[in-house]
Amino acid sequence: MPRTILVVDDDPHIRQLLVFALAKAGLGAIEAADGEAALALVEVQQPDLIILDINMPRMDGLEVCRRVRADSQVPILFLSSRDDEIDRVIGIELGADDYVVKPFSPREVVARVMAILRRVAAPAPPQPAAATIAQGLLRLDMDGWRANWADVEVPLTVTEFSILRLLAAMPAKVFGRDAIIDRLHGPGFAVTDRTIDSHIRNLRAKFANVGGTDLIETRAGIGYALGPCRGEQPVA
């Protein structure tokens, strides 16, 4: 069955453009003209990915993202008419997986959608071969896309899990931001360093809440590596 993409934008022309481009790529699409309609469709239709405009009347895309993330980790790609870094960072911190600025090329949006969907379907890294990666108190379930710290599950977005899986599969390696981008999206994919930093900051914050204060190390001038993952046992 084709993947279903929810397109949320108050501009009918943009919705029509994206639905057509997604259909050409073999993807199914459903539409919502506002945030309330989008939330209803997420609950009923359970789409595989959401393309979400930030600047909508009544309920903007940031609020929609907050409500979706309360009980779902469905991938979210934000659309915005502004290229302000603050919007980009806030969107990522709320749990978005990617961000495209208007005006955009429908081909670029579809490429980013396909990249996110490939990450969801991607097999586990070749090392280790087991379906679970265990490093200290960290456990990653490759098949279930679940992350646990000392038996406490930590909800992650697709991109957050993909980054952590990359670091945990090769704990002795330090990854530069460009290397992380290439592993997630492929060479030449336009993602800013600040976006990767935001995802890393989200990972650290989520695991710190359950005692994982040493999840990811920063190697100055080089990049990121998995930490010792000893942390602290969560308080009962």
Results as ranks from 00 to 15, higher is better:
residue 3 R to S: 14
residue 12 P to M: 12
residue 19 V to G: 06
residue 25 A to C: 10
residue 28 G to K: 03
residue 28 G to F: 02
residue 28 G to A: 11
residue 31 E to F: 01
residue 33 A to E: 13
residue 37 A to Y: 02
residue 38 A to W: 00
residue 39 L to V: 04
residue 49 L to N: 05
residue 50 I to V: 15
residue 50 I to Q: 02
residue 57 P to M: 11
residue 62 L to M: 15
residue 74 V to M: 09
residue 74 V to P: 01
residue 88 R to G: 00
residue 91 G to V: 04
residue 91 G to R: 00
residue 91 G to F: 00
residue 92 I to K: 02
residue 96 A to T: 01
residue 98 D to N: 09
residue 99 Y to K: 00
residue 103 P to H: 10
residue 110 V to I: 14
residue 113 V to T: 14
residue 115 A to T: 07
residue 116 I to S: 03
residue 116 I to K: 03
residue 119 R to A: 11
residue 123 P to T: 14
residue 128 P to L: 09
residue 132 T to C: 11
residue 133 I to T: 15
residue 135 Q to T: 11
residue 135 Q to V: 15
residue 139 R to H: 12
residue 139 R to L: 13
residue 140 L to P: 03
residue 149 W to P: 03
residue 154 V to K: 01
residue 160 E to M: 10
residue 161 F to S: 04
residue 170 M to G: 09
residue 189 F to Y: 09
residue 191 V to R: 02
residue 195 T to I: 06
residue 201 R to P: 01
residue 206 K to Q: 12
residue 210 V to A: 10
residue 211 G to E: 07
residue 213 T to Y: 07
residue 215 L to G: 04
residue 223 G to R: 05
residue 224 Y to E: 10
residue 230 R to Y: 11
residue 231 G to S: 09
residue 234 P to V: 06
residue 235 V to K: 13
residue 235 V to F: 12
residue 235 V to Q: 14
